[in-house]
Design a protein around this nucleic acid. Structure first.
Length: 237
DNA sequence: AGTATTTGACCATG
DNA sequence: CATGGTCAAATACT
């Protein structure tokens, strides 16, 4: 990628700014005047964070823009003999058992693939449906993400099912919170997910930043059937 | 060329 | 009947 596009230029400049900020931090630490270093560190950390987010947003916007699809003529039969469908097309209401409140990134350590999107009645934002990228190996975990109605910066993430893909997907989950969530749509709105959507070649963590996970808060809800859990991710800076 | 994402349609559930 | 969850062809990206 050359610097032919404005996006590329912005990316390049932000990267330079990021490096400069990192350098500045080094200098401040080396100089070590107690108070100044402390404040300086906070500032540089802030700058780095901003750069990081802009870069993430830009790069995702550049690669993920302009996907369209024409009408699919599906009424006629393409496959007469139906394949075995999923048992239930619609989940029972109120199956969410847990709710997780967290700020920072949506990285939950698993790799998800989007399989649907739906406008939900009563909510002005669509809901996104993901399933484990290893569902083909029998993993039945699913996840749905919806932007909070009241709080645009918050996202409600509901998890259903369990990850049974022993090796592949759970490895990521075991090691704290690596960046692994595929959420191009989130970026379009909140623009805070600093992870690669791992397009093309599969199974590549963008091992960029394990950015300090701002302490997730877990909140358990009563009354569910215990089938899944829910999390609210806040993308406020 | 292969894979991930998009998006309208289908269909089960309430 | 309305709503929401999933499917799958078409499309876009690497």
């Amino acid at each position: 990628m050359a610097l032919s596009t404005p996006t590329a230029v912005v990316l390049e400049l932000m990267t330079m700014g990021q490096q400069s900020a990192a350098h500045l931090r080094e200098l401040l630490m080396a100089a070590s005047p107690p108070m100044a270093a402390e404040h300086g560190q906070a500032l540089t950390a802030e700058i780095l964070r901003c750069c990081d987010r802009v870069i993430a947003a830009i790069s995702k916007g550049a690669t993920g823009a302009g996907k369209k699809r024409k009408v699919a003529d599906r009424g006629a039969a393409t496959c007469p003999s139906d394949l075995p469908l999923m048992s239930s097309k619609r989940r029972a209401r109120g199956t969410a058992a847990h709710r997780v409140l967290e700020t920072g990134t949506a990285a939950d350590g698993f790799e998800w693939r989007k399989y649907g999107q739906k406008d939900i009645n009563g909510s002005k934002h669509p809901r996104f449906y993901y399933r484990c990228a290893y569902s083909g190996e029998g993993c039945g975990a699913t996840r749905r993400v919806q932007q909070s109605r009241d709080e645009p910066a918050a996202f409600v993430i509901s998890y259903y099912g369990e990850h049974t893909c022993a090796d592949a997907c759970q490895q990521g989950a075991r090691s704290a919170m690596p960046p692994a969530v595929v959420d191009s749509a989130l970026n379009a709105w909140g623009g805070a997910v600093g992870v690669d959507s791992n397009g093309g070649s599969r199974g590549q963590w963008s091992s960029s930043s394990s950015s300090e996970g701002s302490s997730p808060v877990l909140e358990f809800l009563e009354g569910g059937l215990g089938v899944g859990w829910e999390s609210v991710v806040n993308y406020l800076g």
